[in-house]
Design a protein around this nucleic acid. Structure first.
Length: 354
DNA sequence: CACATTTGACCTGC
DNA sequence: GCAGGTCAAATGTG
């Protein structure tokens, strides 16, 4: 993140304020359109982020101003423009805001079921997740896995998810998502990103019009330990593991036709992450299709997609299983392109704010 | 070597 | 004080 001089900050402040106003306007307009809860939540988050960004920019602006006033020594052009003091303030602020964000972040749940017929679907949701913790939960038989976006460090994507195996149904995984993925957007905006070294990571860099809505080709292959554990405990007795052993998952109403072999390649940790199963030779023809995580369906779908309530997932799962072609929101890339782009008249121009 | 998971310690909110 | 959530060092893997 480039600190920038105070005139940079003034510009940033101006743009942010503009964005905040536009968001309010959008909020008012949306009110009449009776948006679903997640849409509202998204908007709230955008506004919250903007307000936070404004506050940070103001703080940095003030700090830069006072530092410039009190410190007569010439500032190096090559060094960090942020003073030590402002850096400390920035970090403290960042920490506080992170805590606050966790509260205000949109949160929604999903479920993934192991149906046991062949392809791994659903638990991989089109994003790269990195496991950062596991915790025994009181009253739960199985530990909860904590995942965050792989791009958290590089672009500051704060999306996280928690995966927990259901007590009642060992074939069922409860997935709680928190926060929107900003990684694709920021990649799109050309944010300075630590250059990915592996070929797969470059799959994330797709055409801008696709990038906003389409999951990266580098789809994560492991929601992970839970599945693998499950594989060990259950699947091994239920499936024959040939050259491409597979497990079949659905995530809520979503079907991920793309198959994820649950063999040892996906059991090991590390090793540069997940090579994309979707561009591998074993990829099925169905892998041209994607489904969106719930947040994408409700937020970018312009209301054309069903809003999935938490309570409705059980039904949705069975519906998706029994009638995937008509009821499931299985969509291909073209569909997403058609339906999920920002409204051209949408007054909010993210390019100006990031 | 880079990037992943694992896991105990630490932090935070109730 | 406890439980949930996160951090970060240790470790594993290709």
């Amino acid at each position: 993140m480039e600190g920038g001089s105070s005139w940079d900050l003034s510009l940033l402040l101006s743009l942010l304020s503009q964005g905040e106003q536009q968001t309010r306007q959008l909020e008012a307009n949306l009110e009449a359109a009776s948006p679903d809860e997640h849409c509202k939540s998204l908007l709230q988050q955008i506004r919250s982020n903007l307000e936070e960004a404004i506050s940070m920019a103001k703080m940095m602006d003030n700090t830069a101003g006072t530092a410039a006033a009190s410190d007569s020594s010439p500032r190096s052009n090559s060094g960090s423009p942020r003073s030590e003091n402002s850096d400390r303030v920035f970090k403290e602020h960042e920490r506080r805001e992170l805590c606050r964000k966790r509260k205000t972040m949109p949160k929604w749940t999903s479920q993934a079921r192991v149906s046991g017929s062949g392809a791994a679907e659903g638990l991989e949701d089109g994003y790269s997740w990195r496991k950062y913790g596991q915790k025994e939960i009181l009253g739960a038989k199985h530990p909860r896995g904590y995942y965050r976006c792989t791009h958290r460090n590089s672009v500051g994507c704060l999306a996280t998810k928690q995966v927990q195996r259901s007590d009642k149904d060992p074939w069922l995984f409860d997935i709680t998502y928190r926060g929107e993925h900003t990684c694709l957007q920021k990649l799109l905006q050309g944010a300075p990103v630590a250059a990915p070294k592996d070929e797969d990571s470059h799959q994330n860099l797709m055409h801008p019009t696709q990038q906003q809505q389409q999951p990266p080709m580098c789809l994560e292959a492991k929601p992970q330990a839970e599945i693998l554990e499950l594989q060990n405990q259950v699947l091994s007795s239920s499936f024959s593991f040939g050259s491409t052993p597979l497990a079949d998952f659905t995530l809520g109403s979503q079907l991920f036709p793309a198959t994820v072999p649950l063999d040892d390649n996906f059991m090991g940790s590390g090793g540069g992450g997940f090579s994309s199963p979707f561009i591998s030779p074993t990829t099925t023809t169905d892998s041209n299709y994607f489904t969106l995580p719930p947040f994408q369906m409700s937020s970018y779908g312009g209301g054309s997609m069903p809003n999935i309530s938490e309570s409705g997932f059980t039904e949705i799962i069975s519906a998706a299983t029994s009638n995937s072609t008509t009821n499931s929101p299985r969509v291909n890339a073209a569909f997403m392109m058609d339906h999920l782009e920002f409204d051209p008249v949408f007054p909010f121009d993210p390019a100006k704010f990031f």
